[in-house]
Write a protein that binds this DNA or RNA. Structure first.
Lengths: 211, 211
DNA sequence: CGCATATAGTAAAGTACTTACCTATGAAAG
DNA sequence: CTTTCATAGGTAAGTACTTTACTATATGCG
C-alpha cells in the first residue's frame, strides 16, 4: 500500500520515469522501503489509472523511449491525505528476528556463523549511513524541511542498527576484533524448573492481544 | 514465505490447530511476524499438501471440531533447511520511517501529533516487553535453548524501540514529562548553499547500489 | 432476553510482491 | 571481433498476503 506513496513522494519532487524511480529508491529510501522493478511499474500503472499521475513518452537516442511520469493535483492531494492519516500499527515482518526466535532449530555453529555475518553486514551498512549523515551535516544549506526529515529517518535507522549490533555482540560473546569489549561472564544460578514455553499454555512470552 | 517457517517452528514445539497457532502468534511472535486468520489457514493447507504437516480432526464438545496439525519429519527437515540458509538482506518495509522520510508533505502540526502519539505507543509497547523480559528472567529454569533465543529477539526489539524513542524525543524537542532530558540547542552555523536533494542528481543521500 | 466474546474455521476478491524473462545499446575484456 | 557486463526500460506469470464477509456453537454479562 505504501509503495504508492513512496512513488508519489518522489514524484512530488520532480517528474521521473519508472527506471529513475527505481534508482531513486535504491539510492535514497532503500533502507526504508525497497521495491523491485515490476512492482514499481505495476504501481505506476495503477497510479495512472487513478489519475494520480500523468505520463508522456519521451524518445531518446541510443536508449529505449521512456515514460516520464508527473504527479497531478489529485496525486498531491492523495499524498497529503496519506500523510495526515494516523500511523498504523506497523506490520511487523522481520525475517532476521524470526530466524533468531527459532534459533534453536539450527545448529549452534550455523547460527553463530549466520548471526556473525549478519552483524558484519549491518556494521558496514551503518558505517556507510553514518558517513552519509556526516557528509550531509558537514554540508551547510540543508535547511530544507525535506532534508531534515530524511536525516531523521536515516538517524533512526542508524540507531536501530546500533542497538541490534550491541545485542548481537553481547550474545555472540564478542568474538570479534573490532570492539574489544569486556567479556561478561554471568554466574548462572543452576536452578531447574518445569516451566517451559508452551505455545498455548500459561507461561506466555507476551500478552494476549486481540487480533 | 517465512510464515511457513514460523508455523513450522511453532508446530515443532507441539501440535496445534490453526486457531491455536493464531493465538500463539499473537502472543509470542507478534512483534516479529504477524499473520491474519485466513493467511494462517491457507498456509497450513499448503504445508499439508507439501507433506510438511499431517492433520487430524478432533471432535470437541461444546466447541466446533478442530484440526490438529502435527509436523512431519519432512517438515522438520524443511525447517532446519530454512534455518541453515544464509540470512537474506532483510526486506526493508517500514511505514513509520516512510512517513518520516516524507514528513515535509504533512503540516508541522500533523506530523508532531502523529510522531508524538507513535512515541507514546512504542513506549507502552516497550514497557510491556521489558516487563515480560524481567518476568522471564526472574523465573529460573529458563535454561532451554529455545527460550534463550526468544529472549534475544525480544531484547533486540526492545533495544530498537528504545533507539527509536530517543531519536523521536530528540526530534520532538522533549515535549514530554517522562524523560526530562537536557534540551540540546546546537548553534547552527547559518550558511547557505544550493545543493539540495535531487532524486537522480549528484548529491545522493546514499550510495548507488545494485538491485 | 439479547448481546458480546471466544472458538474454529471457510470463501472470495483484491493488493502487494517475487521470479523469471525480454529487448536493445554501448563499453570493456579477452 | 565477439562474448560478457552494465545500463536502460520494461512485461508476464505466479506466489504471498490482506480484507471483508460469512458459518456455526457455546458461554458469560447485564
Amino acid at each position: 500500500m505504501s509503495l504508492r506513496f513512496a512513488l508519489l513522494g518522489l514524484l512530488a519532487v520532480e517528474p521521473a520515469s519508472g527506471y529513475d524511480l527505481k534508482r531513486a529508491i535504491s539510492r535514497s529510501t532503500y533502507f526504508i522501503w525497497n521495491a523491485t522493478g515490476p512492482q514499481i511499474y505495476n504501481t505506476l500503472h495503477k497510479l495512472r489509472e487513478e489519475g494520480c499521475i500523468t505520463s508522456r513518452s519521451l524518445a531518446q537516442d541510443g536508449k529505449p523511449d521512456k515514460q516520464i511520469h508527473t504527479i497531478t493535483a489529485r496525486g498531491r492531494a492523495r499524498l497529503e491525505e496519506f500523510m495526515s492519516e494516523p500511523i498504523r500499527a506497523s506490520v511487523t515482518r522481520d525475517e532476521v528476528l524470526l530466524r533468531i526466535f527459532f534459533g534453536n532449530f539450527a545448529s549452534k555453529k550455523v547460527i553463530r556463523r549466520e548471526l556473525g555475518s549478519y552483524l558484519e553486514r549491518i556494521r558496514r551498512e551503518r558505517a556507510y549511513m553514518e558517513a552519509t549523515e556526516a557528509r550531509i551535516n558537514a554540508h551547510p544549506g540543508s535547511k530544507h524541511e525535506a532534508r531534515r526529515f530524511q536525516l531523521l529517518s536515516l538517524r533512526i535507522k542508524v540507531a536501530q542498527y546500533r542497538a541490534m549490533e550491541q545485542e548481537l555482540v553481547r550474545f555472540l560473546g564478542d568474538g570479534d576484533r573490532e570492539t574489544r569489549l569486556v567479556k561478561l561472564r554471568r554466574h548462572r544460578r543452576g536452578a531447574s524448573a518445569k516451566n517451559t514455553l508452551r505455545i498455548a499454555g500459561s507461561t506466555r512470552l507476551v500478552r494476549n492481544r486481540s487480533n
